[in-house]
């Protein structure tokens, strides 16, 4: 049977735990163990289905304007790269115009960039690619070194020009060399790995919800015919071989919904 005393004592233990938290933080390095996990707090629940007001965790829409991680040179290099990885053409806008570089900039400025969620304890040793990345650098640091190394290569190879100064054909030659590992980069940057990271992030920016700064006007979704953040297809699931009639929608809706009539 229910023993309310035991439950009560456990709750008391939990609140005394919260009282001791401040002194613990000041006096023990144990707290550092939890540094990657912001706002984490042990909780005890019992006797009721918990409902914690305002505990939902919606995404934070990106803030337009300026660069949060890239400096001006990195930004112009990145804009040139994303435009070659997904070029604007008669099918629709490319990586630059849909905001892929802005997307990557905001990602690198956030928790993705510094690898705070990943296992980053030493030793960092070389390994077969099938054992997974073993770099000591998070994505943000990899972009800083990688973009600098690409520009250093371009200056040496193309009469002191930066990547963004090259013709589209020259830019494609450099990117192909990175992808295939046929050009050597300075500062120990591994071209194929860095290329793979940039390509993955660029496609993310092209196809992720516009709330993160890329896929502007849902152009990536329009290109392929993906209806986006919809939640109910029951009326269409058995309409076989029939195109879905509605345009894409994002987490924040679509611009036509937000215009005053």
């Amino acid at each position: 049977m229910a023993d309310k005393t035991a439950g009560g004592q456990a709750v008391a233990a939990s609140s005394s735990l919260q009282q001791t938290r401040r002194s613990l933080l000041a006096t023990t390095t144990l707290a550092l163990l939890f540094a990657p996990f912001a706002n984490v707090e042990a909780r005890t629940f019992g006797g009721v289905l918990p409902w914690i007001p305002e505990s939902a965790d919606p995404p934070t829409p990106f803030q337009p304007g300026g660069w949060h991680y890239f400096d001006a040179r990195e930004a112009s290099t990145m804009e040139a790269i994303v435009e070659r990885l997904i070029p604007g053409d008669d099918l629709g806008p490319g990586g630059r115009d849909v905001g892929c570089a802005v997307f990557i900039d905001r990602q690198l400025a956030g928790p993705y960039g510094d690898s705070r969620r990943l296992y980053m304890r030493p030793p960092f040793a070389k390994a077969a690619a099938t054992l997974g990345p073993q770099s000591q650098d998070g994505p943000a640091a990899q972009y800083r070194r990688g973009l600098a190394a690409i520009n250093a290569y371009c200056r040496t190879t193309f009469a002191n020009k930066e990547f963004s100064d090259l013709s589209p054909a020259e830019q494609d030659t450099v990117l192909t060399g990175l992808e295939k590992g046929t050009i050597a980069l300075s500062d120990g940057v591994a071209g194929p790995q860095f290329f793979k990271l940039m390509l993955q992030n660029t496609k993310e920016g092209f196809l992720a919800d516009p709330i993160y700064g890329g896929n502007r006007d849902m152009a990536g979704w329009v290109l392929i015919g993906f209806p986006g953040a919809r939640y109910d297809y029951r009326d269409h699931i058995e309409k076989h071989n029939v195109a879905y009639p509605l345009p894409p929608v994002g987490i924040m809706g679509r611009s036509s919904w937000n215009q005053k009539s």
């Binding site: 229910a2 023993d3 309310k4 042990a42 909780r43 005890t44 629940f45 019992g46 009721v48 289905l49």
Partner: peptide, 15 residues
Amino acid sequence: LPVLMRKSNFEARTE
């Protein structure tokens, strides 16, 4: 969980 959590002889400690 909607049934389990309402029981007075059950407790969950998270984190």
